[in-house]
Amino acid sequence: MSHDVVEVVLRAVCVLAAFLVLPLVVGQTEHKVMAHMQGRLGPMYPGGFHGWAQLVADGVKFAQKEDIVPIAADKRVFRLAPALGIVAYLLALAVIPLDAHVFGANVDDGLIWAIAVTGIGTVGTLMAGWSSGNKYALIGAMRSAAQLLSYELPLILSCASFAIAAGSLSLVGIAHAWTPWWLLWQLPGAIVFLVAATAELQRVPFDAPVADSEVVMGPYTEYTGLRFAFFLLAEYAGIVVMSLLLAVLYLGGWTGPFDGYLGWLWTLLKGFLFALIIIWMRVSWPRLREDQLQRVAWLGLVPLALLQLAITAVGVVLTA
């Protein structure tokens, strides 16, 4: 019994540590990769070696800033909003397995759990936008709600395709059922997932809700200091969660050479690959207009996801 408690506490601490470290790694990668893609150097001074401590310095800066709550704001909701996104992605990260035995918690319906709790995180954005009492924040929140509603559907449909192909809703089970054949068979689903996940995270080219040249910073306009930093952390934690999820679903998670010993490393590397692609998209494409954004979701991704579901169903029936 006490062994169980120790194990649960240890797993929880490890998840928390991963939640605090991995987003920073992705953030620093974004700083450096984006800089080099644009012919710059990026941060060079903090920490000495190629500016590795830039985000630590940013964190210290955010912690020192004054925590301002506008007079026109709905104060309790305004204060509570940043917590929702953070907690949601923390809960999602807890169920993603890095190896057959390396996970925060093994949930039978882990896939649904991961999508469901990230859905709660989006409510935090809406609460932030509404409670700020600022027109830019409100417009940003409306854009964000419209976007999240339309991209939730293709995301869930593509996840359903992976689940049907594996015959399981457990993330460990899906990774076990993976074969190299999936790289071709599930390719449309993986593309839909990647695009829809980028839109869910409100990253470029789907960043109309936080478009700086149109609505300042959208729902986060009025936030300062640590609360603003929490939103940033939630965004990068979201990249980590979505990338690892796609790595487990589409690239077989820990499958690879020496996966008896290095399984967790494979999952991390594959996840990192998707994180790099998400960063790459930010550097490559301009922002989509609001109507183009809806068009991509309803006329592009949803039919593609339905097609993928049909292909998966045919494949499962034929090979069963």
Partner: peptide
Amino acid sequence: LVALVNLLIYVGAIVVLVLFALM
């Protein structure tokens, strides 16, 4: 499963839709 689907559909979609309509 019922609990998670309830979370996914009602909290993730319906409440977001209600908030969107209110805004």
